[in-house]
Each structure stands twice: as C-alpha cells, then as structure tokens.
C-alpha cells in the first residue's frame, strides 16, 4: 500500500475513532497520541493490509484492541481535564451557561444508563457506527443491539423530559 493509498483508505479512521477514544481518555492531547500510535501500527502493516479480504474489519478490530489496552491503563474519570478547563474558563454569559447545563443534564442521563444501553447509544449516536461495527465492539447480535438502542433512546428522552418539566415547575419530581 502506497502512502497515498494509506491516506485514502486508512487515515479517515482517525476521524471516525476520535470521539470513542476521546470518551475513554477524556483528554484531547492523549486522544491524539493514542490515535497516532494506532495509525503508526497500521502504517507499519500497510503492505500486508492490501492482502486482507476486509481491511475495514481488520482496522476496526485493531482499534478495538487498542482501546481495550488504553482502558486498562486509564482510570475512569467523570470530568476530564479539558472539561474542567472549559468549565473554569466559561465566558460569563447566561446563554452559554444554559447551553452547557443542558449538555451536562444529557451527559448525566447517558452516564447513568446501564452499561450496555450506554455503550450502544454512544457508539451509534455519537460515534455514528454501523450496527455491524457495534456488533464487532460489543459482541451483541444486531437484533439485540437494535433492542438496546431503542430502549436507550427512549430512556434518555424520558429522563430529559423529566428534567425540563421539573425546571418549568410542572412537576415536583427531581432528577
């Protein structure tokens, strides 16, 4: 595989994988380093990539293993350094605060979902992965992924509605 072929066939995976790895590491600089390492591994194998029947599946599997290695090394944190920095440096505008507060509500709702629901909704609605790719990552069959995703989307919507209703004072139940 030439450098140009690598650029066309493999490099776009950096963009596709970025949000997922960013979510694991919670830090942009570390995410970029991790993706750089992954791309370097693929670059070293670029001649053998051509001989594979399904290059995308191979890259995806390699990315999955790379993420598993990263997860072993990284302790889970709720807020990453970048998020903390963003919160500290927030412009003093009510509009921005509202926006961030809403995102924080949604984030909490998703974080509090049972793991398999959370995984599936993140892979689909944030990372934009196909069902077959989610199957590769989770090991679940596609029909089951659809069930989990459907329930996760419903649960998130219900919880967000509850928060908005509470904020409007139409219900006394807090989130």
């Amino acid at each position: 595989m030439t450098s140009e072929e690598f650029k066309i066939q493999v490099l776009p995976w950096a963009r596709r994988l970025y949000p997922m790895i960013r979510r694991l590491l919670k830090n942009d600089a570390e995410t970029q380093d991790a993706i750089q390492d992954l791309m370097m591994k693929l670059w070293d194998k670029k001649d053998s990539l051509l001989k594979l029947e399904n290059t995308d599946a191979y890259i995806f599997r390699m990315a999955k293993n790379h993420c598993l290695d990263l997860m072993k090394k990284k302790k889970p944190l709720y807020l990453g350094e970048d998020e903390q920095l963003k919160l500290v440096n927030l412009p003093d505008k009510e509009g921005n605060f509202d926006h961030l507060e809403k995102f924080d509500h949604v984030r909490k709702v998703i974080e509090e979902l049972p793991e398999k629901y959370r995984q599936v909704i993140q892979y689909r609605d944030i990372d934009g992965f196909e069902f077959e790719e989610i199957m590769e990552l989770t090991g679940y069959e596609v029909p089951y992924i659809r069930v989990l995703l459907s329930r996760a989307r419903g649960m998130v919507k219900t919880e967000v509605q509850k928060i908005y209703s509470y904020e409007k004072g139409t219900t006394s139940r807090s989130f």
Partner: peptide, 20 residues
C-alpha cells in the same frame, strides 16, 4: 438538545488527519 450534545461529543479537531 440531545442531538446538539451528540454533535458536541463527536467533535474532531479540524487538522487531525494532516497532523497524523
């Protein structure tokens, strides 16, 4: 708001591919 949040979480630096 949900979609805006998903969009924000899916943010990728503009020059990522070129840098790598």
């Amino acid at each position: 708001d949900l979609f805006a949040y998903f969009g924000q979480e899916a943010f990728v630096p503009e020059n990522l591919e070129n840098d790598i």
